[in-house]
């Protein structure tokens, strides 16, 4: 239902319908702002980022249909990309070590989000085939937007070891997802 609605709004936005864009913003900005805030960990930067995200959405909504993804995943991908680009363009990463590990123990949040429903079962099954540490690293990389360097710091591994380790996890994941 909500997915249909967001798709319908997006196709209207692709046609340059401003009221539809306003509605799309009202329905989705809290989630996308949440994404920017989580990755950037800075309110002012997240506010800037979320504006850039919607400017991209306005200009690129046309390409949504051909992308064939779920609309919420498509929007979140734009928000994550924007936030990660912004994060990497900072000089020094501003990260506190404390809040790193709490995420890693968490199962996917109880919040029955629009977005989480898409591919749930398969990736979760496949993530479970990884060791606990590796699954946590993949998840933290995605959700928090950590770089290899930050992951290496958090998992207390040399950078190259961590990189090889994560890539192997991705290969295992791919094999599992394709099987």
């Amino acid at each position: 239902m909500a997915t249909d609605q967001i798709s319908a709004l997006l196709s209207q936005v692709g046609l340059g319908n401003r009221p539809a864009f306003g509605s799309l913003y009202d329905m989705t900005s809290a989630k996308l702002f949440g994404v920017c805030l989580r990755i950037l960990r800075d309110r002012a930067e997240a506010e800037d980022a979320v504006q850039e995200v919607y400017i991209k959405i306005w200009h690129n909504a046309k390409s949504f249909q051909q992308a064939g993804a779920s609309p919420m995943s498509w929007l979140i991908a734009i928000a994550r990309n924007q936030s990660i680009d912004k994060l990497r363009s900072r000089r020094a990463p501003a990260v506190e070590l404390d809040d790193a590990f709490e995420v890693m123990d968490n199962a996917p949040g109880p919040e029955a989000s629009l977005a989480a429903k898409d591919e749930k079962s398969k990736i979760d099954l496949c993530i479970d085939t990884l060791s606990k540490d590796r699954a946590a690293a993949v998840r933290a990389a995605y959700v928090e937007g950590y770089s290899y360097l930050e992951l290496a710091t958090r998992f207390q591994l040399p950078l190259n070891t961590l990189r090889t380790w994560l890539r192997r996890s991705l290969i295992s994941l791919r094999e599992c997802l394709e099987s």
């Binding site: 779920s70 995943s73 919040e111 898409d118 591919e119």
Partner: peptide, 22 residues
């Protein structure tokens, strides 16, 4: 990959941006 990892999107909590952003 975006679709695969979309399963993690539930971890992002919604936070209303201030009206000034709109």
């Amino acid at each position: 990959w975006e679709q695969n990892f979309a399963a993690f999107n539930g971890e992002y909590e919604s936070v209303n941006p201030p009206a000034a952003v709109r």
